[in-house]
Amino acid sequence: MDRDVTSRDAAAAIAGDARALERLWRSHRRWAAAVALAHKPAGAELEDLLQDIAMTVVRKIGDLRDPASFTPWLRRIVINAARTAGRRRRTRLRLVGAATGGEGALDRHADGDAGDRPEALAEGRRLLDLAQRLHPDYREPLLLRCVRGMSHKQISGLLDLPVTTIETRIARARKMLREEVEFEAEARSLPVTRAVRSD
């Protein structure tokens, strides 16, 4: 996510260069997805959200005045899309067997494929679920830090916060996540009625 390259591509995209817009989207869609993941409501599908975001970017890029402000502009689009998804609660479902007149079974698409995956992912998914309990102010930098290549400095630029604030928020988020893990472990080992959070 080189700032000069981003600004150059953004300027070209604003001028109507479709290839530049394509490059711009591809180089930013991972962190945009991470921001969406941090802000989206539980019922919203990440893929649908990203489709909406990509469409909005394409339609609105001509309105962007300063190419250097592409990154915060995209983040605003992502957060607005996540909030809108929360209001609409739009879900994509699939009815199986409807065409044959059989009993329709609802099949909700999950963000990830629920099929067989390496077991190592199970822990990561569980942690990601637990991270959803954190406040977005902490969840967002924490998830962005997990996007390959995103440094504290880049996250700081994206969120428009000092690097020290980002560092502190990530440290705090990790600590809260550890406590969530411990709470979960304790809750599993105790009768349900005793697993009450103290704070």
């Binding site: 997805a33 394409v58 339609r59 990830g112 990561g124 998914r125 942690l127």
Partner: peptide, 23 residues
Amino acid sequence: ALSAGVADALAVADGVEAPVEYA
């Protein structure tokens, strides 16, 4: 572990292209 979980969740992003035909 969290990075692996996030990478897994974000993999869907690689399949979402900008519909530049609307550019």
